[in-house]
Write a protein that binds this DNA or RNA. Structure first.
Lengths: 226, 226
DNA sequence: AGTATTACACTTACGCCGTAAGTAAGTCAA
DNA sequence: TTGACTTACTTACGGCGTAAGTGTAATACT
């Protein structure tokens, strides 16, 4: 007697904004920003594309949410301690977050809305600088130069996919061959890229910290002579 | 006697890669990168979309060509003169070029192929630093930190559309209202953005040069003590 | 318990996009 | 003249974001 057979009730866990955003980040992390489409994201969640619109207003709202989650992964600096160490820590964790989510650097550009985690982080950076003794004017400048460097470095790194110094050296050697004829006009590229980087490689972590300390050390000088 | 009336022979000047690239840049400059599509570009040139493919291989080839033209607009630094002045000049002209073509900063990310103008410029920067007396290792680092800062600054600026200090102040005031309730948790944002930037505004040129000199001055110190 | 409301996933459809493939019209060398 | 080449045109395909409407299961309220 065919009662309504409870044939494997789909039993899908319901969607939520959180689940949608997390899945979107995972997809973008794995396959890149241009592979993140509403249809593919829906398929990943076992759902049709239009269902996503019950939880995000549209695609830019989706990206806004994703970006703010990335901001939440950054360690805000503490105010009142060793300000250089605190800012080094936040710079490193920013770089780490942008590295984990290499699509984020491209998506943060041109975005006009700032999520709460973004505001929280920047409030903390300003507070750290103010506590260190910088004037308001210098605080603005100090944050601006650091942010520009941090995001710019991440941007440059995303141009060169190889991660390790060895990979980088190999890539440099390959490009030296590719551009061989043109390169003969560029002796300094040969000397530096061909003669040095292709041998020694390029340690992103070390170079990043070097540049950061160029900035922080000079800021410290300006602070002490003010 | 209906001879073949030479009824207004279309007389269109033929396309060329140069013309396509220039038109693409003009379109992207005016309407943004996301408005640059093959169809709209073709319409601008009075042609059908597919005709463009006789002059560019595909859309990324088009963008490669556009990006290299932007590089051609940057003044390469001279080697052997006042190296800080030369590098300040190239930084300013880079910023100016990225400002004229605000889409470029987004399109240079992740690009793996480097056009001749890109190579030429970077060869000149390396040459300038080597002539100033930097070791090969320090030359790599010095270029890296400058580039990161320059591109990062342009990236940040593209987040905030207003150009003039006054516009910036007005925008800051508007955002203070938008985020009023959340902002109460962020006293330093209130102090700095609300209390200072919203009043004094933000002079991009001045702030850019300040940050650049933070870097160049510290590099000079490291050079003289080596 | 029965009914009304809401929440949420589904289907369909529209106008875009980049571009593969094939066609037609002009130019120029032999 | 002819035939190869260049270059613009037409058509078509699959994928995109998303507007609009439909069906259904859970929840809230008599």
């Amino acid at each position: 007697m065919a009662v309504k057979t409870q044939e494997t009730p789909p039993k899908r866990t319901p969607l939520s904004r959180e689940r949608v955003l997390r899945a979107a980040i995972a997809l973008a992390d794995e396959r890149g920003a241009e592979e993140l489409t509403m249809r593919k994201l829906a398929k990943e969640l076992g759902v049709e594309a239009m269902s996503l619109y019950n939880h995000v207003a549209n695609k830019t709202d989706l990206l806004d949410g994703m970006v703010d989650i990335v901001f939440s992964e950054i360690d805000p600096p503490a105010a009142g301690g060793d300000w250089k160490a605190e800012l080094r820590k936040r710079a490193a964790s920013t770089r780490a977050a942008l590295n984990r989510h290499h699509w984020a650097i491209g998506e943060m550009e041109g975005r006009t809305t700032h999520g709460p985690n973004n505001l929280h982080l920047h409030n903390a950076v300003l507070g750290c600088l103010r506590a260190a003794g910088f004037s308001i004017e210098m605080t603005v400048r100090a944050m601006s130069v650091q942010d520009a460097y941090i995001y710019g470095f991440a941007l440059q790194q995303s141009d060169m996919t190889p991660e390790t110094p060895e990979d980088f050296a190999a890539e440099a050697q390959r490009q030296m061959v590719d551009y061989a004829e043109a390169l003969s006009d560029y002796p300094h590229l040969i000397e530096v890229v061909g003669g040095y980087v292709a041998q020694a490689g390029y340690d992103y972590d070390r170079e990043f910290l070097f540049g950061l300390d160029v900035i922080l050390d000079r800021l410290e000088q300006l602070l002490s002579q003010s």
